[in-house]
Amino acid sequence: MTWSGEEVDVDAYVARTGVKGDLKPDAETLHALHRAHVAAIPFENLEMMLGRPVPLELSAVQDKLVRRRRGGYCYEHNLLFAALLERIGFSVRGLGARVRLGSSSLRPVTHMLTRVSTGEGEEWLCDVGFGAAGLREPIPLQDGAQVRQGVWEFGLAREGDDLWVLRNLRPDGWRDLYAFTLEERHPVDYVVLNHYTSTHTRSTFIRRPVVQYAAKEARRMLTGRDLVIESADGERSERAVQAGELKAVLDREFGIELSDDELGELERVHYAGE
């Protein structure tokens, strides 16, 4: 199997995400799995902040994201999801994207997402690893597709002959999230991308903690010391998180639990001099 689907602990995944019903390779199951994954497992880069590598072997990813109260970033989330889908019987192809988030500058391909085919022959774009601004559910892989997922709206459009762009609707209009092609990527490709993203001095992920959660009615984001909660109508609250409350904030807002040693190291590194 391409994504090591035979190694997935399906029972543990179901317990972690709370997904209900029979798991079949159809659109209904795909939507339920995507929705449950995003709602249960947060986005975070705390391994990098703790000075540790980010292994992508499925055993390590499952231990962290499924068996513990931790999250991960795009490669961890989407590799786990791809393996689960493969185990169930979906056809899964990996893709790579250039993150835009409203910027017009050309950035390297550093984001993982997937193209998924159901047993009925439908094709969907799936991405459980983009964080608070990302998809809650799959979106049809069709030019001009536009979906409302809860209180959030997303759109997919072609840009030129072979470029696709995922967008989300904000109070001030549509914003590009990322651009991608349909060139197929393989697990070994993500090993290389992961090494750059988790270690290179130009990577934004090694500079400060990034923790996000796509709550039902709001996006929760901790970037550095700034905690931002943003609703679909644009209402926004922001405050600084002090070292002494970091443990409570990670638990309450993101469902993340660190050991005392991990928390102490994170506070030492991130709140040095406070």
Rank of each mutant, 00 (worst) to 15 (best):
L23Y: 03
A82Q: 01
C74N: 03
G121C: 01
R98H: 15
V128Q: 08
S198C: 13
E262L: 05
R252S: 15
E153N: 05
A132G: 09
T110W: 00
Q149R: 07
C126W: 00
R98Q: 14
R70C: 09
G273M: 04
W3H: 09
R35V: 13
E230A: 06
F180R: 00
F81L: 02
S117W: 14
Q149I: 15
P25L: 03
M221R: 13
P25I: 13
D233M: 00
S203Y: 15
K247M: 11
H195S: 13
R220G: 01
G72I: 07
A240M: 14
L135E: 03
M221P: 10
A60F: 13
S105V: 15
Y190S: 04
G144N: 08
A36F: 06
Q149H: 05
A12E: 08
S105Q: 09
F90M: 06
A240Q: 13
L30Q: 15
P209H: 14
E44R: 02
S198Y: 09
R167S: 11
A215C: 08
R100C: 04
L227A: 06
Y190E: 10
E123D: 04
L46V: 08
G224D: 09
A232Y: 08
S4D: 06
V38Q: 10
V151C: 04
L182H: 15
G119C: 04
K247P: 03
E153P: 00
T201P: 14
G273S: 05
I256P: 02
V249L: 14
V151T: 12
L50P: 01
E257H: 15
R167Y: 14
T2C: 08
A157S: 13
V128H: 07
R167C: 11
H270G: 01
W152Q: 00
L141E: 05
M112V: 11
P53E: 12
L182S: 14
S104C: 11
A15P: 03
G150R: 11
R107N: 09
V8Q: 07
D226T: 15
M48L: 15
R100W: 10
G264T: 11
T118V: 13
V151E: 10
E245K: 15
G94K: 02
R100Y: 12
L95D: 01
R115I: 14
E153S: 02
M49N: 05
L80E: 13
R67Y: 03
D261N: 09
L56H: 01
E86A: 03
A215Y: 01
L263V: 15
S237I: 02
L125G: 03
H186M: 04
L163M: 03
E262R: 11
P138R: 03
V92L: 15
D161H: 11
R136T: 09
G121T: 13
R220Y: 08
Y213P: 00
E245Y: 12
G121N: 11
T114F: 07
W124P: 02
K20S: 07
D189R: 10
L65S: 00
T17E: 01
T197A: 04
W124Q: 04
L50A: 05
Q62E: 01
V151Q: 04
E235Q: 14
V19A: 00
A83K: 06
T17K: 00
A40W: 09
A157R: 06
